[in-house]
Design a protein around this nucleic acid. Structure first.
Lengths: 234, 234
DNA sequence: TAGATTGTTAATCGATTAACAATC
DNA sequence: TAGATTGTTAATCGATTAACAATC
């Protein structure tokens, strides 16, 4: 049995308690879940840490450590039951309860996100589309009517929205963020290329598309320099 | 002067050498650069580590450490010159040389990426659009004709493409990845929700949109549990 | 039982932070 | 000079890995 780590004032952390799972592990759990789903689709019922780790692109020791945070669900000498793991990871990630997501900003990127099939297939349904542009408000995208951001409080309450995807222009992001927080949203996924700040009780993640390319550009430079060095040595 | 760390067979690493910059630092350099650009737009010429760190959402000690990997470009008692930093970060990230990017897959998400203004404004231009679907090949998106993936080798050679953005269905991603590598692409940004493998000389980054929501969902669960605990204590 | 594989430990590695001497 | 701020050190923290006892 795992000893409680990071125990706080509230008492012990049992395995599976959200508090006891490291951030880096949480991100990988999403990958494991995706891989496990494809195994289940192929009617594979048992998988070893070595097989699952290879499929997920990680070290098998890391995979076993990650899974150990959820509890002890493997069978020594055998492996893990695919169905059992899917169940426990889904519960840990909170995917067994319905979560209403609002998408704010239905411009170029927002429209693509509104139609992104990968959200629905992995447990998320966009419950509301919101924009500030009169030219977009009232239009229908994928069966959803774009609502006015001025009605945000009502929209959030209506659908019980806790998670928002922010796809507005950089200049508007902080202000929209503030509105979301005031309306009661407690998790925000920010696509706007700007640093936004939120109060401590709100979780914020960002996706910076241009930064991803810049990081790859750095590695291109690194590889080019390494190639030059090799030539110089020869 | 920074002592060389991670020196390899090729000899010393001077500051600014791509090899000497940690991965976590590289990712933040992109953010610093973005913030610095907005400062430059506002005609601000000098910034302290405290100010820049706050604007970038990081600890000022971390910012100074990050910048120290590029060299020693600050002025004690004063701060950093915005223009100087922009120049050095741009060079470190390899943004001073033109890099041709190909976008593979112009479906829902791919079309949005093709039109994403944030790429151009931060130094990247999509040089080619590629797809495998006959219904899309030959069509024009943002002034670019969608080309047939069967002509990939020629397209890569024609534009000197080294970076590819992969926005194809999960089922096709590995095969397309293989083709890209064979054609000479050495950096890939993967949006397909599947683990793809590439040879060691190729850099691969992934953006998993649904996983981002799942991570936020985890934190929603964590917060809900914490709230319950508080109630139980009262 | 013999073989296989988990769960856990301890070592290692890399990233972050606080503190402060150096110096503008 | 006095005040401010950098660049760097050393401590801390968190994440990863190898190894192996436990056990199916």
């Amino acid at each position: 049995m795992t000893a409680p780590r990071d125990a706080r004032s509230a008492g012990d952390c049992r395995p599976g308690d959200a508090r006891s799972v490291p951030e880096a592990t949480v991100a990988r759990l999403a990958t494991y879940l995706r891989v496990l789903s494809t195994l289940a689709d192929r009617s594979i019922t048992t998988v070893s840490s070595e097989e699952l780790a290879t499929a997920a692109g990680v070290n098998s020791a890391l995979l076993r450590k990650d899974l150990s945070f959820l509890g002890s669900y493997g069978i020594r000498g055998v492996g893990y039951e695919v169905g059992t793991l899917i169940e426990h990871i889904s519960r840990t990630l909170g995917l067994t309860v319905h979560r209403a997501v609002a998408l704010i900003g239905v411009g170029n990127l927002g429209q693509a996100l509104a139609g992104y099939a990968g959200f629905a297939s992995r447990g998320f349904r966009i419950a509301a589309l919101v924009d500030a542009d009169a030219g977009r408000i009232g239009s229908t995208i994928r069966g959803l009517t774009v609502r006015d951001i001025r009605d945000l409080d009502a929209i959030v309450a209506e659908h019980g929205i806790t998670i928002a995807v922010l796809a507005v222009p950089a200049a508007a992001a902080q202000e929209v963020c503030n509105r979301l927080v005031r309306a009661g949203v407690t998790s925000i996924l920010n696509f706007a290329p700007v640093v936004v700040s939120v109060p401590p009780h709100v979780d914020l993640r960002k996706v910076d598309l241009a930064a991803e390319l810049q990081i790859l550009s750095f590695h291109e430079t690194r590889k080019a320099a390494a190639a030059l060095t090799e030539v110089a040595q020869a």
